[in-house]
Amino acid sequence: MKTTETFESLVRAEFSPENTYLNTASSGLLPARTVAALHEAVTIRAEGRPLDPLFEDVELARAAFARLAQVPATRVAAGPSVATQTALVAASLPAGAEVLTVEDDFTSVVNPFHTRGDLKVRAVPLERLAESVRPGTALVAVSAAQSADGRIADLPALRAAALTHGARTYVDFSQAAGWLPMQADAYDFTVSTTFKWLLGPHGAAFLVVPEDFGGLSPLLASWVAAEEPWTSCYGPVVELAHSARRFDVSPALFTFTGVRHSLTLIEELGVAAVQAHDLALADRFRAGIAALGHEPLPAPGSAIVSVPGLGSRQPELSEAGIEVSNRAGNLRAAFHLYNTPADVDRLLTALSG
């Protein structure tokens, strides 16, 4: 784990926000190294230089995410969004299969199962998820941390229930990867976008699949899904990649260049150090907002804090240079590595007025 001094010096070298940014649950800030890499990628395109370094960045980003997820890179597929990756999983299910979801989970995690039209999709409260797995449940889909309020799913209990009843699991780490340790091998499928806590540009999401691909079909396969992409540019692909790359779609090169460099910062800091930093700030805010007479929604151990009844304050806070979210009337504050105790105190001061 990084020392406090090393952690803070690394962060200071990468971020200099002009406001109090407490909205990582919507979109993370870009590190300076990522901004520089994006400029270089644009220059490569503008000057007509070979794009080989950008394609290499896709593989380096895949490898970095695999290390974060604690799985081999051969199990990681690269795509544009969580919704497209969910759709891939949804398409693998037989007609009539039961999919267990959580009430009011993020749309990208659940909607592709509904749009299939021939699946039995059942939604239950988050706290009842594990006990709601039953014989005949084909798949359980859930966010590791809820977007709306930061509640963390009891993933070990879910895993045990799924194993008992022969159900597969699909876990979205979009609101957790980067501050919550992730062990993707514990679940059948995991997914995460990269523009939130992983600090990358928009347009990339990684799907982790089983070694045997879990029955997925490469529905969106193009030339990049081939075992030898550069000799598979014309006509049908003769041989799909032997790895999860068979599920790739043509990558947004600039995005993956940015993701590659953002993930190096997360690795340098260490997820454990980021988690300790983020949770200390979230707990500081929880204590402060309670002292002001407001009760945050219960989400112990989360870097996301949601306070009922204060969402309407979001516009005035933004005017004051404090960025938070309004989610269903709740004020949602998200605390990440570039935030400080002074940021927390500034928000509390603004809310006390």
Rank of each mutant, 00 (worst) to 15 (best):
V58K: 10
S132F: 05
T164K: 13
L51Q: 09
S147Y: 15
E227I: 04
P53D: 11
A141E: 05
E295S: 13
N23V: 00
V142G: 02
S143Y: 01
G301I: 10
Q70I: 05
A63W: 06
L88E: 02
E40T: 12
E8Q: 15
S108A: 15
A69Q: 04
E14M: 02
D118V: 09
T20I: 05
E59Y: 14
T231I: 04
R75A: 11
D248G: 12
S108L: 15
L347G: 01
P156E: 12
C233V: 14
S108V: 15
A328N: 13
V42M: 07
A350R: 03
A291E: 13
A41K: 05
V58N: 12
A160G: 06
A272M: 09
W223F: 05
A157R: 04
V133D: 01
A225G: 14
R260M: 10
S232N: 07
F213C: 10
R122T: 10
S16F: 10
E14F: 02
L88W: 02
A177W: 00
A91P: 15
L269S: 03
A77N: 04
P53E: 08
D345M: 03
P135K: 13
F254C: 06
A83G: 07
G96H: 03
T349A: 13
V305R: 04
V71K: 13
G235R: 05
F113M: 06
N19M: 13
V140D: 02
A123S: 15
V191K: 00
N111I: 11
A64V: 09
A160W: 03
I289W: 03
T164L: 14
V237Y: 09
S143E: 03
V109Q: 14
V249C: 11
A177H: 06
V224E: 09
V140P: 02
E18C: 00
R122E: 11
W197I: 03
P315Y: 01
R159E: 15
R313W: 00
R313V: 03
S222K: 10
R332L: 12
P53Q: 12
G215H: 08
T6Y: 05
A77K: 02
W197R: 08
A205V: 02
L265Q: 06
V274G: 06
E5Y: 03
T169Y: 08
A299S: 14
P251A: 08
G235K: 07
S302P: 04
P308A: 00
P156G: 00
L347F: 04
T349L: 09
R260K: 12
A144M: 07
S318A: 13
L292W: 01
S325C: 08
P31Y: 03
T340K: 02
S352C: 04
T101M: 06
A273D: 06
G301A: 07
A350F: 09
A320K: 08
A87G: 11
A333R: 11
A61S: 14
A87F: 03
D104R: 11
A46M: 10
D185N: 04
V124Y: 06
G79V: 01
Y170H: 10
A46L: 11
E56D: 15
L51G: 07
F195H: 13
G270Y: 10
A78F: 01
P181T: 00
D149Y: 03
T4R: 15
A25Q: 02
V109S: 15
S232D: 05
E56Y: 06
A328E: 10
A225L: 11
A184Q: 02
G301Q: 08
A176V: 08
V89S: 06
T86Y: 00
V191S: 01
A303T: 06
F195L: 08
